[in-house]
Design a protein around this nucleic acid. Structure first.
Lengths: 117, 117
DNA sequence: ACGCCTCCTTGACATATGTCAAAGAGGTTG
DNA sequence: CAACCTCTTTGACATATGTCAAGGAGGCGT
């Protein structure tokens, strides 16, 4: 991977023409790819699934559910957060609660769905 | 990345319960993640976009369009092929033509779309 | 046959990624 | 305060990934 990938802000839901509509610009492709990368891992898919299903979950519940260390969960959650796919953690007592940002995931789907336009 | 990711066949369109419906099994999450991984790169997003927009494109047109070597395009195309997102190349004369498999991409969208169920 | 296309494979490489253990940072409860 | 929880950060690591140059493989044209 010789070329370093540009660093851009991806916390907002993506907003660009659908992939299938016309050949995508370099910049838009990067926006899409970075968000997909955030989700392209089995552990992250399961985390998103858990967050989407139960609407507020804390790290201590997630870690045993997916079978990795809490440190690793924390790392994955921050990747999902940076991609705007989940909310900032909200501390309540000793726990930190996260929730999925459905609109961000939905926006991503609309962009890559070949039928969605 | 200490643990090696299992190798499974991903050439067929994915078919499983939506991520948002219920906590996803390990196996299903892997199926989803592998397909997302195949698309989680700016070059691959652009390639898919080109294939979706023009319905049949050959490598020699793709390489200059995305700005990498033909060898690299070839590599990306085979990743997309392994994920079932594009068809096997069809040789015609000196060129090899590829086309997007919309139904595979569509199936992936339906699984990850939080609104799609 | 020979040279010339287009394409794919291989090898090598620099970088990114996922994982954990260990150590900190915040908060709670004796 | 001190012991304890939960969670995040840091450091280190093994593996995966994206890229290219070089060399084949298949096909066309003279």
């Amino acid at each position: 991977m010789p070329k370093a990938l540009p660093v851009i802000d991806t916390t907002d839901p993506i907003c660009c023409a659908p992939v299938a509509a016309a050949p995508m610009t370099d910049g838009d492709a990067l926006e899409v790819a970075l968000r997909l990368k955030a989700l392209a891992d089995p552990v992250r898919v399961r985390l998103m699934s858990l967050l989407l299903a139960g609407d507020e979950v804390c790290t201590c519940d997630l870690a045993p559910a997916v079978g990795v260390t809490e440190a690793t969960v924390s790392h994955h959650l921050s990747a999902l957060k940076k991609a705007g796919l989940i909310s900032d953690g909200e501390r309540r007592g000793m726990n930190v609660y996260y929730r999925a940002r459905r609109e961000s995931l939905g926006a991503l789907c609309r962009v890559i769905d070949p039928a969605c336009c």
